[in-house]
Design a protein around this nucleic acid. Sequence first.
DNA 1: TCTGGGGTCCTAGGACCC
DNA 2: TCTGGGGTCCTAGGACCC
Length: 423
Amino acid sequence: MRNIYALIDCDNFYVSCERVFRPDLIGKPVVVLSNNDGCIVSRSNEAKNLGIQMGTPYFKAEEVIKKNRVSVFSSNYALYSDISSRVVEILKMFSPNIEVYSIDEAFITLNLTNSNFTKYGKEIRERILKDVGIPTTVGIAYTKTLTKIATKIGKKNIEYGGVLSLLNEKDDDMYLEMVDVEDIWGVGRQYSKWLREMGIDNAKDLKYANRQVIRHHMTVQGLRTVLELNGIDCIPLDSRRVLKKSITSSKSFGIKTDSLEDIKKALAIDVAQAGEKLREQGSVAGTLTVFLLSNPFKTPCYSNSISIKLPYRVSDTPNLIKYSLIGLGKIFKSGYIYKKCGVVLSDISTVNDVQLDLFNSSFINDFNIKNKAMITMDRINRKWGRDTIKIGSMGIENTLKMKQDMISNRYTTDWNNLLVVNI
DNA sequence: TCTGGGGTCCTAGGACCC
DNA sequence: TCTGGGGTCCTAGGACCC
């Protein structure tokens, strides 16, 4: 029996989240910026129509933005992730099989007893819009890659009313022809350049391409994409809550700096954040990588990284900070203006798998004590806000704090930020 | 002046083993 | 002195995703 997939994809998600609390902005151009107010990462349809491109640096679009009175927001991840989880809760009512693919997309499988799939898709859409206030597009098909194609077309053509089903396969080729090769899930910049050179311009061309040639040039993943375009299900729903295999935390500095002392503090803050994520999933890390970059848009530039194999797996912030500062000391070179640093934790396993040190009997106690202290610290910080308790090396004030000049309130996750209504 | 952050999977090649 | 074939593990780098 064939699976039937639906992809529920929130429209212009970050912008839509901002509009939930600013309904006056519906119908008006709005953009949301990346961290540090660097690039434009979400655009309302009105902003798209002004020619504002995804990923454009803010300063390059500033003129168009001012001229057309586009509303601009810094990104507010506390708000977006809370709204995202509300959408997921609703989807769970429609299907027990769900894969939360990203902050604004989820796949579900549909039961064959729902005979009218398009109608069911519309019900899902309307429920999310009514209960959470977020508009979505729903794509329905026999493979996940085809649901991606369906939402892509559904978003561009309002006549589908936000739901497009490709279950009537004789029409597939007509739809596939509408989608450029660059826009296919699994085809990025490098592959699309090569495909274009091969005369493969759209999804229909790729569907009928020579499979051996594709396999050779684009590995098994490329082959899977071709098969999926043919309606052959190769990428199953992945509903496991998987443990992350690596955890990164890094940030560009709000102010560029050549000061090792400032960078040490910024790195300690990143490490603390990574450590918290590590403990949240009950894991410990065996390897830690520190990296440091000067401004890549300026010459001369310098970047370096160093990986440190930890003597034993840890998850406590003081140890992680200790080793990362050793690493930083080894790669820091004076005389450059730095703009970013960060840490990657890898070689991750669960706490239960930790190899204890036979020759160091005090180690077990040490491990347990530090962990209890960390768990308590995490709990307090979750309840009372980030950095209520922190490690000394993070400093009192983050001198390189990122820019977020236009951030909205944390309306749904902070009592002090509740929406105020004047009557 | 101003250019984000956080992930996954696959492959090739080297080291090492029997 | 000559020399084979097959396997595993690890790492770096390249591709992709949101």
